[in-house]
Simulated scan of single mutants.
Amino acid sequence: MKNLEVGIIGGAGYTAGELIRLLLNHPETNINFVYSTSNAGNKLYKVHQDLIGATEISFTNEINADIDVLFLCLGHGNSTSFLEKNSFSENTKIIDLSNDFRLIADKNFNGKEFVYGLPEMNKEEIKTAKHIANPGCFATALQLAILPLAANHLLNNDIHINAVTGATGAGTSLSETTHFTYRDNNFSHYKAFNHQHLGEINQTVNLLQDRFDSEINFMPNRGNFSRGIFATTYTKFDGSIDAAKKMYKEYYKDAAFTFVSDTDIHMKQVVNTNKCIIGLEKHGNKLLITSTIDNLLKGASGTAIQNMNLMYGFEETLGLNLKANYF
């Protein structure tokens, strides 16, 4: 079978850069075009400088409507407007990395039904889907921390989450809080208790545990590093630590990239990989769940490739066996 012809819309951002890197090394894909009106005619490596020597592809302002897979790497709210203005073949499968179609209220758009693309929860639905709404980065790390509890109807008290993300989580556009002089040797919180990813997190919990009526208290933080997310989550839990570990390991026993560790975890274990690693501790009547991912890979482009693999019946890990930047 010939390689899949793939197109990328919004090719100049961090997630697109990682997506291009993964697709260039994926044995079943060929990059047909990378669309960027502001960079049309420039070589990809002029923007994504890590790609020098890897490809001679240039950005384009032209679109091929007959591709097999379309990745949308646009800013939030822009995928809907793009799809309103551009049409593709009935055979084209779409994977959207924005938040436009993640909520049930938004999943049907212009005759297209988007499946929420969290493989650890929706693997079977993803396999038969034509359109995927890729999860958010924080949403991925936090949902993977609590999915086993929700699936077993054990989220009966408020959930408290403190999580920190690297500078790449804010995108390539410069602002006061992404400038080096702000981030360096600094730490701050933002969007306290009302981060946009709470919508999809609450949605998932309510799908798994339909009588969930507690609060999810989420405090997002900016870290002074480039990439990665580290989250600490705790809630009341009556069982033992052994019972918790058994439940989590059973839930993730068939997960290709999510692992439960018996030792303390840290972020360097996952940076540059598609892994999520989870740690568990019991403190009094509270269960502490730590989870860590690379925000650009497991939190975005890596899961997008994972979803593509599932949609086409490839090995789920194909093109994603990456080693962490541990040293």
Rank of each mutant, 00 (worst) to 15 (best):
A129T: 12
K2V: 11
A324N: 08
A256R: 01
Q143W: 02
K323H: 10
S89I: 12
P135W: 06
S240M: 06
F257H: 10
I289H: 10
Y252E: 05
L118A: 07
A300E: 00
S261M: 13
L19K: 04
K107E: 12
T168M: 06
I57G: 06
P135M: 09
N134G: 07
E315L: 07
G299I: 10
C73D: 01
T204F: 01
Q196C: 08
A54V: 13
E176G: 13
N108A: 06
L207C: 03
N221T: 08
L287W: 01
F259P: 00
D106K: 15
T178V: 03
F71I: 12
D264F: 09
P135Q: 09
L144P: 01
E125F: 09
N156D: 11
I126N: 03
N307K: 06
N64R: 02
L144N: 13
E5A: 10
N42M: 12
A300L: 00
V69M: 10
D210R: 08
A105M: 04
I20E: 11
I289W: 05
G239T: 12
Y252A: 09
G77R: 09
A324E: 06
N309C: 05
A141T: 15
Y248E: 04
K191R: 15
E315Q: 09
L142S: 02
D106C: 09
N217H: 07
T273L: 10
N110L: 14
I305C: 05
D242F: 14
S301E: 05
C137A: 15
V271R: 04
K123G: 06
N194C: 11
G111K: 13
G279T: 08
L74H: 08
G10Y: 08
S89G: 11
D96S: 13
N134W: 01
R21Y: 06
E62C: 08
F187G: 12
F212A: 07
K268L: 09
N78A: 13
K236E: 15
Y312R: 10
L74V: 14
L74R: 11
A40P: 06
L155D: 10
K85Q: 10
N221M: 11
I95A: 05
D100N: 05
K130L: 07
L72R: 04
N30S: 07
L318I: 12
L149C: 10
F259D: 07
